[in-house]
Amino acid sequence: MTLEDLTDDVHESYTELGDELPVSLDRETRNELALLQTTLEPEETDELVRRAVHMLFQTAVETGNLDFHLRSGYDVTYDEYLSGMTFDEMTGADQYPTMDDERRYQF
């Protein structure tokens, strides 16, 4: 898969998500969310869920977990996704023909 495939898939997922997301909670998640709500006292529980998504995303970026999955599935990194170009496109490495190592130094 390519950078274009990733961009298309992200746009598709974004559209499918919409503005609201019904989430089912297991017992452990409900308990942890209740404790956070009681302790942090947000205006709405939705705010805690938004913060959780931001924290998970930030952690995935900082630990390289996001890059690992992007490289595995789409052969790009998060930086390449943000810039809209692959590393080879940025450096110009994709504009040169491949070298034939057997004939490379023949005159």
Rank of each mutant, 00 (worst) to 15 (best):
E4C: 05
D5H: 14
D5M: 08
T7K: 12
D8S: 15
D8T: 15
D9R: 13
V10Q: 09
H11F: 14
H11P: 05
H11A: 11
E12L: 14
L17W: 12
D19N: 14
D19F: 13
D19K: 14
E20F: 11
E20D: 14
E20V: 12
P22N: 11
V23G: 00
V23E: 02
S24G: 10
L25T: 05
R27E: 13
R27H: 09
R27A: 10
E28M: 08
T29F: 06
T29H: 04
T29Y: 04
N31Y: 07
E32H: 07
E32A: 07
L33Y: 05
L33E: 00
A34M: 11
A34W: 11
L35A: 13
L35I: 15
L35C: 04
L36C: 02
L36D: 03
T38W: 12
P42I: 06
P42H: 06
P42S: 04
P42E: 07
E44S: 10
E44P: 10
E44H: 12
T45Y: 03
E47T: 15
R50H: 11
R50Y: 08
R50E: 12
R50N: 09
R51I: 15
A52D: 02
A52W: 04
V53D: 00
H54C: 08
M55E: 08
Q58S: 14
A60W: 01
A60I: 01
E62H: 09
T63E: 05
L66M: 07
F68I: 07
F68G: 11
L70R: 02
S72A: 14
G73K: 11
G73M: 11
D75F: 07
D75I: 07
D75R: 09
D75H: 14
V76Y: 02
Y78W: 14
E80K: 02
E80T: 00
Y81G: 01
L82Q: 10
S83W: 00
S83T: 09
F87A: 07
F87I: 02
D88Y: 00
E89Y: 00
A93N: 03
Q95G: 02
Y96I: 02
Y96K: 06
P97M: 06
P97H: 06
T98G: 06
T98M: 04
T98N: 04
M99F: 06
M99H: 03
D101P: 04
Y105I: 05
Y105H: 04
Q106P: 05
F107S: 10
F107I: 10
